[in-house]
Design a binder for these strands. Structure first.
Length: 575
RNA sequence: CGGGGCGUAGCGCAGUGUGGUAGCGCGCAGCGUUCGGGACGCUGAGGUCGGAGGUUCAAAUCCUCUCGCCCCGACCA
């Protein structure tokens, strides 16, 4: 490709709307262009990168036994009613109506379609396992697109769906996919962590996310340096046991309830300090509205509520903190509330409240708390579950070690769906025993644009992008200096033709620009190997080679250049 | 949906307070000089000042409404 003809210009200054690095660099490099909030065009060089990523993914999917297919973007709304997932996706789905007043959706994902296909084509256990995938645009009306390509409304996604005869089969498909994912990221030059995750609107029981550690990431995860436990904080568990001192062990016996005046103390911190007890000796009350219903949540004072876990526990679609007025309406004295004596309100308690005794809790009247509150002697909960939020420094649920935390970009998410979709859509098969069963499903997604952005987040310097060779838009940048010098011009043309003919992807900077401009552009574009041809190098019938990742340069003889370049590219790709 | 910010040439911005011929830098076009890390000179093209309505002799500037974009939160793969 001749640079002079390449569609898309490099920019010295990033457009003001770009805040994170990948967004700025991709815009400056002329790889993407924004059309509207969360809607982007890929310009030729950006599209080349995307297609390389796509090919890597395709190869790994095929290797794992996947079959590629193409599914419709326009989907009948009825399918989503059948699966029931239109409720959990809600506003996130783009919907439209055709001329016959039929409701359609722009597919946010394709489990319904694929299950519908499986219903028709999978009839026997002999047809299983089945792994099919698609690489296509999906649409989600995000409440807030952000971060350039990191969170968009129209995006290209690879989704593979697995159908197995039983749980053991699903486990095997899941294992294959998680291996394929590791291969994909490695080939894209990314280092990722696989963490336990919440499955959110997709549903299902077990899921893992692949995270690229980055400050610009939207997710937070915790991991244990000792045993390797790692999880998204939405999902993460912690060990809540408090190591008791001898003195405290004596106090473990439930003592009689006692009312104490705490006139000014409302927050956990104030109450604990006032009474000289640790925060884990108190109970905290938090109020939510879950699908319109008021919920009283109790958790040990030192912990915080994990809203994702709470939402899952309540099996609700909408969850928000209750407004002050709503709390008052429910007859609750904010700041002095506890579940003791509360009637007619759903109470959800974190299981931490069962791990202690003689807690401090609100007395449900202004200015007073109770001492020696014990569960279940003094109050009952409708639901007891783990609803605590993990933090850096908490204890690992596996080994008790100290958890660390980090932010990450989710570049892949795999789910064990089970049978809830196949049951609803009738995707069942006849087993060897002649019994009909729903297929056991899994789904495995990768957002390609987000992956591309994550690669930039992880591979750049002050001058620009540093594409790994495997995904670079061009492998080689041919940079002649003094294009007005006929010897340079003709030698450059010749080298360009030779490289092209050998199938090497080369961007030929035939522009009449100063060396500084060219060098800065190649650094910005992030092309791995730079070949500089000038009157100086021509004196020794050679060309100067420099890797984007390195400082040193070295002269290569023009003779046999193609073979030499090929060898170097191969060596680098093999690493 | 709540809070904040911003819409002026392809990009970055000034001008808005106090209404009076729309500017700067980069980029772009032409010519010339340059040429190993964003060169220089001269000449030039390019703007419904996000949109609509209003006030006024006169609106980028004041008023009302509206649309869009970004950030934080809610929410969300």
């Amino acid at each position: 490709m001749r640079f002079s003809k390449l569609f898309g210009k490099t920019l010295r200054q990033a457009p003001a709307e770009a805040e994170n690095i990948s967004h700025q660099l991709l815009l400056r490099a002329g790889m993407i262009a924004q059309e509207a909030a969360g809607i982007y065009s890929y310009l030729p060089s950006g599209w080349r990168v995307l297609r390389k990523i796509e090919n890597i993914i395709r190869e790994e999917m095929d290797k794992a036994g996947g079959q590629e297919l193409m599914l419709p973007i326009l989907q009948p709304f009825e399918l989503w009613q059948q699966s029931g997932r239109y409720v959990s996706f809600g506003q996130t789905m783009f919907t439209l109506t055709d001329r016959k007043e039929h409701k359609l959706v722009l597919g946010p994902t394709h489990e319904e379609i694929i299950a519908d296909l499986a219903r028709r084509y999978v009839q026997s256990y002999r047809d299983l396992p089945l792994l099919v995938y698609q690489i296509q645009a999906k649409f989600r009306d995000e409440p807030r697109p952000r971060g350039g390509l990191l969170r968009v409304r129209e995006f290209i996604m690879k989704d593979l769906y697995s159908f197995d005869a039983d749980e053991a089969g699903l486990d095997e498909s899941y294992r294959k996919m998680s291996q394929a994912y590791q291969n994909i990221y490695a080939r894209c030059g990314l280092s990722t962590s696989m963490v336990e995750a919440d499955s959110g609107a997709i549903g299902g029981k077990e899921s893992h996310e692949f995270m690229v550690i980055s400050e610009t990431g939207e997710d937070e995860m915790v991991f244990c340096p000792h045993c390797g436990y790692s999880a998204n904080v939405e999902k993460a568990q912690i060990s809540k046991t408090v190591i008791a001192t001898l003195n405290e062990v004596k106090e473990k016996q439930p003592l009689p309830l006692e009312e104490i005046a705490t006139t000014e103390q409302k927050t956990i911190e104030e109450v604990a300090n006032f009474l000289g007890v640790p925060q884990e000796q108190t109970l905290k009350a938090v109020f939510y509205i879950a699908d319109g219903e008021f919920v009283f949540v109790v958790i040990r004072g030192d912990l915080e509520v994990n809203e994702t876990k709470l939402k899952n526990t309540l099996k609700c679609n909408e969850l928000r903190i209750a407004a002050e007025s709503e709390v008052a309406e429910a007859g609750i004295v904010a700041g002095f509330a506890s579940p003791i004596g509360i009637k007619g309100v759903k109470v959800v308690a974190d299981d931490s409240i069962t791990l202690g005794s003689n807690f401090i809790a609100g007395a449900n009247k202004a200015g007073y708390h109770f001492r020696n509150v014990n569960y279940p002697r003094d109050f009952q909960a409708d639901i007891i579950a783990d609803i605590a939020l993990a933090h850096q420094g908490d204890k690992c649920p596996e080994c008790g070690g100290k958890l660390s935390s980090a932010r990450g970009i989710e570049v892949g998410h795999i789910f064990k769906l089970g049978t809830f979709i196949s049951e609803k859509l009738g995707a069942s098969f006849l087993g060897q025993d002649g019994v009909s069963r729903p297929a056991v499903m899994g789904c495995y997604g990768i957002g390609l644009g987000r992956l591309l952005a994550a690669i930039v987040e992880q591979n750049h310097d002050d001058n620009g992008i540093i594409w790994p060779l495997s995904v670079a838009p061009y492998q080689v940048y041919l940079c002649p200096l003094h294009m007005d010098n006929p010897e340079v011009a003709s030698a450059a043309e010749k080298v360009y033709q030779e490289l092209e003919n050998a199938g090497i992807e080369v961007l030929f900077d035939d522009r009449d620009e100063s060396p500084g401009v060219k060098f800065n552009d190649v650094d910005l574009l992030g092309i791995p190997l730079r070949l500089t041809l000038s009157p100086r190098t021509l004196q020794s019938q050679s060309i100067e080679a420099k890797w984007r990742t390195k400082k040193e340069t070295r002269l290569l003889p023009l003779e046999n250049l193609v073979a030499e370049v090929n060898k170097r590219l191969r060596e680098r790709l093999a690493r």
